[in-house]
Design a protein around this nucleic acid. Structure first.
Length: 426
RNA sequence: GGAGAGGUGGCUGAGCGGUCGAAAGCGGCGGUCUUGAAAACCGUUGAGGGGUCUCCCCUCCCAGGGUUCGAAUCCCUGCCUCUCCGCCA
């Protein structure tokens, strides 16, 4: 959600900044609704004030034993119009709210211009893509030969875009999650949390998935209106919804390993092969809740924390900054980390790190008490994958394969695989 | 699943249908005192929103409806929390 004052007072500026991300802000509709709101609200408050004053007078008159019947009739007159105005106002405010809830965040001024993914800017490269003396296999072929990656069984159990892992590959996925959690908790100062994988609508509104992106989510067919989380960002960020946290407690830094569920409704036909795009996947998520003046540098730090995982694993990657048009709706500024996939001969997203500034905080009413003014102020929220575990598994398989199809695990993982260094035939 | 209790400001906790945005305590902030700190004392201190914006007004006591001139207080519905019993990973 954007600052309603900014929206009202600098409508043109907001429209311009949203245009940078390719969003068409309907100024005419907004101004029309806003004018209606103002007229109705002023009138409603006027009538409410009259009613309050009269009612109070009735109370006093009654205490003195005076006749209150004529006064009561006068207020009754007022009630009719008040009811009408209140209904009309509620309708307009609902429309305004819906309109504003659908607006994406403003891109940070430092974000590169551009409308499509092609205009994202590579900011650094880590490692170098491996050169093979043979034709490298993709993870599906590598996982097939008795190594325990099975899409057929998963399709039988459920449908497309699911996988069954067993044996060393199942263990490797578990090892990766443990490894990531340990680094973030022990070296980067995050607190590990375990959270519900099912959330209510308020939480999804808070982080921006609802109302606009309901079709990306799995909704549970129960009357509570529950959804499966598409990312632990939803559960963790909402810790501070409707809270006023002491400034001294910030920054709050949480790391959370969770399963994530996405309907992938808009991606028919894309990445149909393998584990790249699944309805269910594992992710280790980083969330930071920070003072506004610290969010810009917090994003650099958080991205760096995710990057450490790729470095320790020795995976070739690059960091890319989103151009304005490629930002996700809640984000003011984002970096993607992309890992090299030999089978595709390109970098693929393995982490997306975003500074949402006060966009989610305003939707959540997540605030801190300002130390000098003593007033509640919106805090800033950040999140990023550290990393997507399933895609990390894929990257390790593909980058560290040998001619026989064995997978040589990076040394950093040996302690987590019970000493297993190679996954293969022998 | 059965039985009961309850949801009030940052926290604990009062609140006959009218003068209650709400007692009291704690905490926070400011001050006096002190070399400094603590203690003590004095003052101050909810949130959101609107306007004709150095002032005025509206809304909010879990949520949503209802009764009433007037609701934290009465009625209905829902949600949540706690206690006991049963069942269970």
């Amino acid at each position: 959600m954007l600052d309603p004052k900014l929206l009202r007072e600098n409508t043109a500026e907001v429209a311009n900044r949203l245009a940078k991300r390719g969003f068409n802000f309907d100024v005419a509709t907004f101004e029309h609704l806003e004018n209606q709101r103002k007229t109705l609200q002023v009138r409603a408050q006027e009538l409410q004030n009259k009613r309050n004053v009269s009612s109070k007078a009735i109370g006093e008159a009654k205490a003195k034993g005076l006749d209150i019947v004529p006064m009561r009739e006068e207020v009754n007159q007022l009630g009719e119009e008040l009811k009408q105005v209140e209904v009309a106002l509620a309708l307009v405010q609902q429309q305004l709210h819906d309109f504003c809830a659908g607006l994406p965040n403003l891109p940070h001024p430092s974000v590169p211009e551009g409308l499509t993914e092609e205009e994202n800017v590579e900011v650094r490269v880590g490692g170098t893509p491996p050169v093979f003396s043979f034709t490298p296999k993709d993870h599906v072929d590598l996982g097939a030969k008795n190594k325990g990656m099975n899409f057929e069984v998963a399709a039988k159990l459920t449908g497309s875009r699911f996988v069954v892992l067993q044996g060393q590959l199942a263990r490797l996925q578990r090892a990766l999650a443990q490894f990531m959690l340990d680094i973030h908790t022990q070296e980067h100062g995050y607190t590990e949390v375990y959270v519900p994988y099912i959330v209510n609508k308020h939480s999804l509104f808070g982080t921006g998935q609802l109302p606009k992106f309901a079709e990306d989510l799995f909704a549970l067919d129960t009357d509570q209106g529950y959804y499966l989380i598409p990312t632990a960002e939803v559960s963790v960020t909402n810790f501070v919804r409707d809270e006023i946290v002491p400034a001294s407690s910030l920054p709050l830094k949480f790391v959370c390993h969770s399963t994530c569920f996405r309907s992938e409704a808009g991606s028919y036909g894309r990445d149909m092969r393998g584990m790249i795009r699944q309805h269910q996947f594992e992710k280790v998520e980083l969330v930071q809740l920070v003072l506004p003046e610290q969010s810009l540098e917090a994003l650099e730090a958080l991205t760096g924390h995710a990057e450490v995982i790729l470095k320790r694993l020795g995976l070739p990657y690059r960091a890319v900054e989103h151009c304005a048009g490629d930002l996700s709706p809640s984000a003011a500024k984002s970096y993607d980390l992309e890992v090299w996939l030999p089978s595709q001969q390109c970098y693929r997203e393995i982490s997306s790190c975003s500074n949402c500034e006060d966009y989610q905080a305003r939707r959540m009413q997540a605030r801190y008490r300002h130390p000098t003014t003593n007033k509640p102020e919106l805090l800033h929220t950040l999140n990023g994958s550290g990393l997507a575990v399933g895609r990390t598994l894929v990257a390790i398989m593909e980058n560290f394969q040998d001619e026989k199809g064995n997978i040589h695990l990076p040394e950093a993982l040996w302690a987590y695989t019970g000493g297993v260094r190679v996954i293969g035939e022998e």
